[in-house]
Each structure stands twice: as C-alpha cells, then as structure tokens.
Design a protein around this nucleic acid. Sequence first.
DNA 1: ATACCCATGTAAGACGTTACATGATTTG
DNA 2: CAAATCATGTAACGTCTTACATGGGTAT
Lengths: 189, 189
Amino acid sequence: MALRHAVLAALLEEELSGYQLAKAFDLGVANFWHALPQQLYAELARLEADGLVSGREVVQDTRPNKRLFTVTDAGLAELERFATSADKPSFIRDDLLVKVQAADHLDAGELIARLEERAEVADAKIELFGGLLRRMRGDRSEEEFLRDGDRIGPYLTCRRGLAFEEGNRDWCRWSAAILRERRAAHAER
Amino acid sequence: MALRHAVLAALLEEELSGYQLAKAFDLGVANFWHALPQQLYAELARLEADGLVSGREVVQDTRPNKRLFTVTDAGLAELERFATSADKPSFIRDDLLVKVQAADHLDAGELIARLEERAEVADAKIELFGGLLRRMRGDRSEEEFLRDGDRIGPYLTCRRGLAFEEGNRDWCRWSAAILRERRAAHAER
DNA sequence: ATACCCATGTAAGACGTTACATGATTTG
DNA sequence: CAAATCATGTAACGTCTTACATGGGTAT
C-alpha cells in the first residue's frame, strides 16, 4: 500500500492534476516510483474519499477542465505514520537480468543487442536526471544546495535515480563487452 | 509473464525442487528476480502442464519426498523466444525512496534511521554477493574467469546485484549524512 | 489530414501477497 | 524442548496491467 504514499509525497511538492501526476509517474521520468495513469486516477479518488487529499476544479477555456489535488492535514499525518514504519526491502524484477542469467544457453548476439538497447535507455535517463538536478540546484553548487537548499527530498531521490541508471549503463556495456570477447574467442577456435 | 522465464533460467543451471527454487528467489538471495514460494509452486505446475519443464520424484528416507525439475527442449525454445523480445524498461518501486521524496515535510531523525537500516541490509547483501562471486570464480582471477569460465550468466547478474547494493549503501549513507548536517545547522540557529 | 497533447475515467484479467494447512526431522 | 528446516500446496485478497472509451485543441 505504498502507491498512496507515493502520490501524497508527489503532491507535497505542488498541487497537481491526475494527468500531471501520471506524467510524473511515467516510465520515462519516474525517479522514485512508477505507476500508470489508471492507477493514479483510481488512487486519487480513494485518497479523496479518505480525506487525505482534497481536489479543486479548475475551469479552462481552451482545454478540458481539470482537478488539482492538495495533501490535507490528515494526509500529511498518514505520511508521517508511514515514515516511521519499517520498509520492506526492495527487490529486482527485470526482464533483462533474466535473459543474462540464461546467457550460457542463449544466442550471444541477441543478448548483446538487448544490453546495448538498455544502455541507451540508461543514457537518456542519465541526461534527463542530470538536467533535473541542475534545475533544482539553480546557480548554486551542489555542496551549497545540499547545505541550504529547500526541497532536498526530490533532489536526493533524483540522485539515487541517476546513480541507478549509471549503474545500469556501466553494467550493460561491461557485460556486452565480455559477451563479445567470449564470442570472438569461441569463433577463433 | 516473466516469472516463467525466470524459473526456466534458474532451472538451466541445475535441477531444483520447488523448495530449492523458493530459496533462490527469496528476498535475501534473489539477484536476478524475486518471487514467493507459493508463486513458484504454482508456476512449476503451469510450466509442467505446458511441457516446458519436466519433474521427477525423488524418494527420500529421512526427509519428505521432493520433485526435481528440468527444462525441456520446448522450455529452452521458449526462453530463446523470450530473449529475442524487447524487454520492458524496469522501474523503481521502493518505500524508502517515497519517504526520502517527502523528506522536507517529515522528521529527519526517522528518515536517518530508515536510511541506516537500509544501508546495513545492503552491507549484508554485498557480503553475500561477494561470497557468491568468489565461489563462482574459484581460484581464477576475475579476468580469467570472464574470459574462459563457464556459467557466465549467473556471474554477470550477480555482479549487477552487487553493484546495485553498493549503490544503495553509498546513497543511503550519503543521504543520511546530508540530513544530519542540515538538522545540526537548523538546531544551531 | 494525421498525429499527438490535454483530461478523465471503466472494466476485465493477470499477477503478486498474505494467511492458512500439514507433518516429520534436525539443530541449538 | 523450542525453533528452524525440509517439502508442498490451497484460498482469499490486493495490486498492476491491458484494453477500451470519449472528445476538443494544437502542431507538422
């Protein structure tokens, strides 16, 4: 039941509509949680029914109307309660790792292709996260920002996202290189 | 539908029972996928019904009998098909990141405690994975093993697990240190 | 013209988690 | 002698994904 808390955490930053939330939780951007639009609309409805967020209608001329949501006091209390609970260890569930696990029994060329693809996805995310971090820092150095800046939470999670994707990229390229060398050595014989 | 492929990949290494598989996919050990025992028993039944694995009963005196499973030719073909498919990008879903995202609105002491807890979990995993890697290498250097060793797949995925946990540990300690400094600076005023 | 963006959902089905059930054997 | 390990499941419930539905406005 952490999706609700992820939504609450996202809404602490700024008032958002379901649609805007959906973009923030999208695969391409999500740096601390991922969810689909349908989940978010449903969760927002539940959160509102439980009084943890409150929505206000914003009428728009040229675009469809939207509802912007804010965290209520009860919502903040719920987040505080959540923060004191022990969190379940997070685990890996990644198609690519499954494929590499079976590397010895599969076509190396295919695997190398998948690894390169993933490395490129990681490159894109690294650039994205780097930009987000720069925007949050503004014209301050990182040291300065970490000392005095407000909204440190999103900065820290984005830093984790960045390091995670750098890890992905490095591991993918390293693994691909090893598989290539082994394939070459095998072909020589 | 990647659990089935994760099971197939695990069974390529060696013939295993549901119980042994469950241990391999456990939270503490899982380096390329995670699943609960109940899922694995159910998936093994489905895989057998579909002819992708075959089980053989092993009668034991002192322990309950068990069924050991092997990947069939059809199972290997299914894995090969899976390896050629584009994999969906993997995403983060971690309680701890949600909590840190909300850092600016929560008690710093609590967060620091969670971060330290997680860092210690990571430490334990790092040791575990380090040991697994050493066992796989045997008396060879890593370079040598990566060149000639067999069963390179599990080695590569375990390397990813290790790097991931090192990333976790470093980020947790770094974040905790920043939150501590900010708390101290705040208390001074 | 075609496609994408804004904006919000419903419904069905697949997948994952929690709780329960059983029972002998080995380890501390 | 209590707890953990070996060994295999069933049942209920909760969460996530996939498919469908609608409709105006803006960019190429």
